[in-house]
């Protein structure tokens, strides 16, 4: 489902003397349907960078990034947007929303974008919000003023609203209490059971061991700096 081959990534800082920062070389990763792979490595090793490359948010300098058969490194914007709508979900660490939009609509949005009828989309959103213990009185409010943990759970609800065949999870259990953490691990297990290919970053070792089938240390993709 996700097939990354020999990907490299560098940043050229044109306004800082053209400095080139090489952050990744020879990255390869294969994730099958129903499999959950954890990315590990020290802070700054490139875990989030690799996730962003898979999502098409960062442009790979070379190599191929196949997700559901589409090479994200070369695809047109509309092809990537379609992939993100239908195939590839992403739960980032931070919720980014349009001001004024109520929580229930934030969560239902991925389904509405797919053309699911508003009634069904809302119902699905409500099931997820209830399951993630977001009090019903908050559903009609914008999540911009929610606490960090509440925002994180809204973000997760949104990420799981549609049954994406591939999912990227950036620290999905960070800042959650034990009860909500268990809910999230349950959602991940269900996604695996229905055949989703998942790549995640989990600093929470216990969570990682519960849901991940494999661990890939991204330090192996760090470019060797010539002395």
């Amino acid at each position: 489902m996700i097939d990354i081959r020999d990907v490299s990534k560098s940043f050229t800082l044109h306004n800082q003397g053209g400095a080139v920062i090489r952050v990744m070389e020879g990255a390869s990763l294969h994730v099958a349907p129903g499999e959950c792979v954890a990315l590990t490595g020290a802070s700054g090793a490139g875990k989030s960078t690799l996730m962003r490359v898979i999502y098409g948010n960062y442009l790979a300098a070379s190599g191929s990034v196949l997700v559901g058969g589409l090479d994200v490194a070369r695809a047109e914007p509309r092809e990537i947007l379609r992939l993100r709508r239908e195939v590839l979900g992403y739960v980032s660490q931070f919720l980014r929303v349009v001001p004024r939009v109520p929580t229930v609509e934030v969560v239902a949005e991925p389904l509405l974008a797919l053309g699911v009828d508003p009634h069904t989309a809302r119902a699905r959103a409500e099931v997820l919000l209830r399951r993630l213990n977001i009090p019903e009185r908050l559903w009609s409010l914008s999540p911009t003023t929610f606490s960090g943990g509440e925002q994180q759970r809204v973000n997760i609800a949104r990420g799981f609203a549609h049954a994406y065949p591939a999912l990227l999870l950036d620290e999905p259990t960070a800042s959650l209490d034990a009860e909500n953490r268990a809910v999230v691990l349950g959602l991940i297990a269900e996604a695996k059971a229905r055949g989703a290919a998942i790549v995640g970053i989990f600093h929470d070792v216990e969570a990682r061991e519960r849901v991940c089938d494999r661990v890939v240390d991204v330090s192996g993709f760090t470019p060797v700096v010539a002395a």
Binding site: G56, N57, L59, P77
Partner: peptide, 21 residues
């Protein structure tokens, strides 16, 4: 030119980098 979030988060051209920063 490109996907909006990609151009804003990983700008390739010096001018775009200046604009974003």
């Amino acid at each position: 030119s490109g996907l909006t979030d990609q151009v804003l988060d990983d700008p390739q051209h010096g001018y775009t980098q200046l604009l974003v920063s």
